[in-house]
């Protein structure tokens, strides 16, 4: 028993009126699906330690919404963990620039800079991070101070040695 196709004319006017809305939602749904699937792939690659593939998926995720600070932060954290600190700093900095009020983003840049032994720059980011990173700020700031003193002392010694000669 085969029935004729239900005519689409019924409610067509309504359909047209809501189609714009639906398409808008559809594109949102489509994007959220993509995000979800990329995240699934990232988790799989991470669990299998397939770093290049995971980075590829992160990059795709970033391309989907370049203004998503959280994705950049996560991507940076993964790069940092995998030892690609300079690449991590690029992502962290972008996240921090997009959302300067987030202490984690600022603090992450600070941590990455500390890994690169750029302590004075790290202090600036820890300062922006606020109370959450106060401990790291004081330690790093004290260390920067010590380094400065050591440098001054070394410079002094060099100067005296030159004068003695």
């Amino acid at each position: 028993m085969i029935f004729p196709a239900r005519p689409l004319s019924l409610g067509l006017a309504l359909a047209l009126s809501v189609s714009t809305l639906l398409v808008g939602n559809a594109s949102y749904a489509q994007n959220s699906k993509k995000v979800e699937w990329h995240r699934c792939l990232i988790s799989i690659y991470k669990s299998k330690n397939q770093v290049p593939q995971a980075c590829e998926e992160y990059a795709a995720l970033v391309n989907l919404d370049p203004k998503d600070a959280q994705v950049r932060f996560e991507y940076g954290a993964y790069l940092h963990k995998m030892g690609r600190v300079k690449d991590a700093i690029v992502q962290y900095r972008k996240a921090a620039d997009m959302n300067p009020s987030n202490p984690d983003y600022q603090g992450a840049v600070g941590d990455a800079l500390v890994s690169l032994k750029d302590y004075s720059s790290a202090v600036a980011y820890y300062q922006k991070a606020g109370p959450k990173y106060a401990g790291k700020l004081s330690t790093t700031a004290a260390y920067v101070q010590q380094l400065r003193q050591i440098n001054q002392y070394n410079a002094e010694i060099k100067k005296r040695a030159a004068e003695d000669e």
């Binding site: 029935f3 004729p4 239900r6 689409l8 019924l10 409610g11 067509l12 309504l14 359909a15 047209l16 809501v18 189609s19 639906l22 398409v23 559809a26 489509q30």
Partner: peptide, 21 residues
């Protein structure tokens, strides 16, 4: 496919079948 879906009747499936059916 998305375009087709967007232009299809979006809601209200009758709980009783249409008279034609």
């Amino acid at each position: 496919r998305r375009t087709a879906i967007a232009s299809a009747p979006p809601v209200s499936i009758p709980s009783t079948p249409p008279p034609s059916v």
